[in-house]
Design a protein around this nucleic acid. Structure first.
Lengths: 346, 346
DNA sequence: CTGAAAGCGCTAACAA
DNA sequence: TTGTTAGCGCTTTCAG
């Protein structure tokens, strides 16, 4: 009465064993390591498994500490960013494009605070619910690398500067593009170039700010005002208002925004102030979202390879899980997209 | 030597039991049903669990058929859509916004074909790796509802017409908005209104096409040409070319596109053909992506509540999992956004 | 090469 | 109210 039943149940390894005339142990060995069984029986077992349409139970495997074929994405941001942000959907798209072919699933969890975040990493991996993590949004003094190391969790850090942790890192290298942008501004005669950036606690934001600053100084210019805000239209608008509220002698003639959305927000504030783009103020963004080329005027921006960040991250994590030694650092280079908002070419 | 060890292992239910001076069974009861234990011991057990930082093992629970706190999203589309499509990121955003507060995770799997799709649903739920599903992109003769029913999987169908399956369904109701749009076209003097739609095997595409057709007929007009293509810029461009290739007497003076991206694709083809929008051809899209209001001319469109679709779907699925009877049908109403592309108001 | 058996962490039925 | 016990489906020793 226990076995058999109405038949509406998934076959287990025992069913396969029985059909193949062997024991569960043999089946397990045959289908996993492949060793320890004669090729004859192995074939027989494989047959039986196929005929029964058997597939191993995730739960039972997990209970034995085996990988499940899942990677975790724990995000400490508001879920709304999926709707607005340029990074996340593309990033996820890149991840899925490699996972899809590898029969892996993504486990996504948005968490509200650092405490839940830590607990989530711990539970997800402690139980081997996921095999490893893709870590984004690394912040200054971020505790996750240390924690993940303590847990012994395989992980790849994505979108952070090289060397920011001991985990393999995929870096979005936009130094050259930013340098090119600043040079362009300078060539067009701009002496005071402002910068609007997202949360400076984020390593990537910090890094881009530095690239901008260094590029400006290398041209023997004094960096213009810097304002921070969220990577949104509103964030960009507010930051722009603060910039315009400054003394005349601090007022920039060019602004480099940390995201295209911010730049779009800037457009409206500059427009309302009666300032012409690029006539009175030259503008550039970051990301190259589809909207950038449709904006009026079309927005000069630094194209960032979000999808590639996802696919490279997933690729490397998967390789790690297979036991391969990952490259500790991978660079993806950003590209400057010159459009009208930064002024006509000389 | 077995217990104790170096201490670098997660505590198990036995550790909690031991510390509380009871057995595993008692702990399980105390922390699950809460019944069958005196409130005294229950408290003691809770204490011990907290002190040890214990949390139950997903794997072991799943092995006993208990829910894990995960919902599944199996998508038979190219992962690239995450990068382009208007629906998916917003939809996911809606889902996560409710799951985030409920301590649930999303398990996402992109699959290439129907066969993998079926197998994925079966494995994911057969093993209780996920507690239920959110089902999107229901097609004509879609086999998933039947299969999920057979599996006994809780599921909510999202974005399909009312009554298209026996599962609770969230419908994106844009009939009135489409009717309003068509009326608007007619009032502006258009007699021949074309339609460009996505894959007609998709129930939602089919339904919108019908709404368009009915609205046209109700105005005593003959529906103009219909073309199909992918919901992308390219798809829209190609469909527009086919429309322009028709005989003059079939050539429409207004086109209703099934997605904003398609409409944008139409813009370029119409522009290259020397046609003015809305002077020569009036245009409308569907979705209301951010780009729509930035396009030139700004695009009239039907706003679709993608986020709400996700949050309502997740909300209802979660309620079902808690044992509540779900509403069999939920309607979310689309909204017409009139902009210049459909012509000036009379 | 193969079978037998222990055990992963938990739940639930059954006794006490 | 409690303890005891038998699994859940699989992996992995350890004998044979």
């Amino acid at each position: 009465m226990t076995a058999g039943k109405t038949g509406r149940k998934r076959p287990t390894i025992s069913d396969v064993a029985q059909r193949a005339g062997v024991t569960k142990g043999a089946v397990s060995r045959a289908l996993n390591s492949g060793t320890g069984v004669s090729s004859g029986t192995r074939e027989r077992i494989r047959q039986a498994a196929v005929e029964l349409g058997w597939s191993p139970s995730y739960a039972a495997r997990a209970l034995n500490g085996k990988p499940l074929g899942t990677i975790g994405l724990v995000v400490r941001r508001s879920p709304e960013i999926l709707d607005f942000d340029a990074f996340f959907p593309s990033f996820l798209s890149g991840i899925e494009s490699v996972l899809s072919g590898e029969e892996h699933a993504t486990v996504i969890r948005f968490v509200p605070d650092a405490q839940t975040e830590a607990a989530t990493y711990e539970r997800l991996f402690g139980d081997r619910f996921v095999d490893g993590f893709l870590v984004t949004d690394l912040a200054v003094d971020d505790e996750r690398p240390e924690m993940l190391d303590r847990l012994g969790a395989p992980a790849v850090v994505v979108g952070a500067p090289e060397g920011s942790s001991d985990f393999p890192t995929i870096t979005n290298d936009s130094e050259e593009a930013i340098r090119g942008l600043v040079r362009r501004f300078a060539e067009a005669g701009h002496r005071r170039i402002a910068h609007v950036q997202g949360d400076p606690c984020m390593l990537h934001a910090l890094q881009r700010r530095r690239h901008w600053e260094q590029a400006v100084r290398d041209l023997d210019l004094e960096p213009g005002p810097v304002e921070y805000g969220s990577y949104t239209i509103v964030g960009g608008a507010e930051a722009t208002e603060r910039i315009l509220a400054r003394n005349d002698d601090e007022r920039p003639t060019a602004v480099f925004y940390g995201s295209d959305l911010m730049a779009i927000g800037g457009y409206s504030v500059l427009g309302e102030a009666g300032l012409d783009i690029p006539g009175d103020v030259a503008v550039a963004g970051f990301d190259d979202i589809p909207l950038a080329s449709f904006a009026s005027p079309p927005l000069t921006t630094v194209r960032s390879r979000h999808r590639a960040l996802g696919s490279a991250g997933a690729r490397i994590l998967l390789d790690m899980l297979k036991g391969q030694a990952p490259p500790l650092s991978t660079m993806l280079t950003g590209e400057l997209c010159l459009r009208e908002s930064s002024g006509q070419p000389l």
